[in-house]
């Protein structure tokens, strides 16, 4: 059993949790994730480790309510427990000094971007960040990103804050400027990562993305998380989650992530039936 020691509601469907897991807190590196199972009936779902505190022995995760499991997690409070937490899983992000890195976080994707950007900065890179969301009240980690970025841009789809439009537009503008960008890191909804890659590919601008396929065990045992990368089958849980974005077959991943659309709806109906209606709008 893993105790939730802190809960902070970041927006109406996004919450930050600190979970007591001292060993994971000590071992984890930027870019790694955990898999949780909330209760005996629960599904195993992956969540990025956003931060850790080795003195408190906690890890920080940020979860957006998009379905049954994240919905149940969102209903937990400080002092509640999660049945299973396993990690740190996946390969740590590759942290090298390359020069200037543009770090792009779309919606909940800012959560995985933050720890990697922080390490890249610590390694001596110049960090230009672009974070986006549908609307101002859905923006997360703005001040945290601010604190580790040399420059920070915000974009909202509805123009309620920052640039009115997509993160890719800000990226294109930056690319036009006479600064050298050595690398782009982009995490967010698949269409966003795909769009970023479409901007950077013709310019041969190295772009790393972090993928979010459906997972089961997270140790390479099942192959649920397989994605075609550079024409080869790779298991995201052990070979990733970070990959060269120019090699990823986003179309395939998008389709695979919709595998259980009908079942997920059923599971949600079950949840709302038992717990009363809540807002589970999908808003990345």
């Amino acid at each position: 059993m893993y105790e939730i020691t802190t809960k902070l509601q970041l927006s109406h469907s996004v919450a930050l949790f600190k979970i007591k897991a001292p060993k994971i807190a000590q071992k984890r590196k930027a870019g790694q994730f955990i898999i949780i199972r909330i209760n005996e009936y629960g599904e195993r779902i992956p969540l990025t480790i956003v931060d850790s505190d080795t003195t408190e022995g906690t890890i920080t995760i940020i979860s957006q309510e998009v379905g049954k499991t994240t919905g149940m997690l969102g209903a937990l409070e400080e002092g509640d427990h999660i049945l299973d937490v396993v990690g740190p899983l996946g390969k740590p992000a590759e942290i090298k000094k390359v020069g200037t890195v543009v770090c792009i976080g779309g919606g909940i994707g800012t959560a995985p971007v933050y720890p990697i950007a922080k390490e890249l900065r610590a390694a001596g890179n110049k960090i230009i960040s672009i974070i986006g969301a549908r609307s101002k009240n859905l923006l997360i980690l703005e001040s945290e990103m601010q604190s580790i970025s040399d420059e920070l841009f915000v974009a909202t789809d509805d123009g309620s804050y920052g640039h009115h439009g997509f993160v890719t537009q800000v990226l294109e503008r930056l690319i036009e400027e006479p600064v050298t960008i050595n690398m782009v890191l982009a995490v967010g909804p698949l269409p966003m990562m795909n769009a970023v890659c479409n901007v950077t590919r013709p310019r041969k601008l190295h772009t790393m993305v972090s993928l979010n396929p459906v997972m089961v065990d997270g140790t390479g045992m099942c192959g649920a998380c397989r994605v075609t990368i550079g024409g080869k089958n790779r298991f995201v849980c052990v070979d990733g989650p970070e990959f060269d974005g120019h090699e990823v077959d986003f179309e395939e991943l998008l389709r695979r992530n919709r595998s259980y659309f009908t079942e997920e709806k059923m599971a949600m109906e079950e949840l709302t039936y038992h717990e009363g209606p809540r807002c589970y709008e999908r808003n990345i």
Binding site: Y41, R44, V216, D217, M221, C222, E264, M266, A267, E270
Partner: peptide, 20 residues
């Protein structure tokens, strides 16, 4: 994957168990 979903995660009892 198929057997893990069904045996370990009890997908044969979905939606009582969450894994489909």
């Amino acid at each position: 994957e198929y057997l893990t979903r069904v045996n370990l995660m009890r997908a044969y009892r979905f939606p009582e168990y969450d894994t489909p």
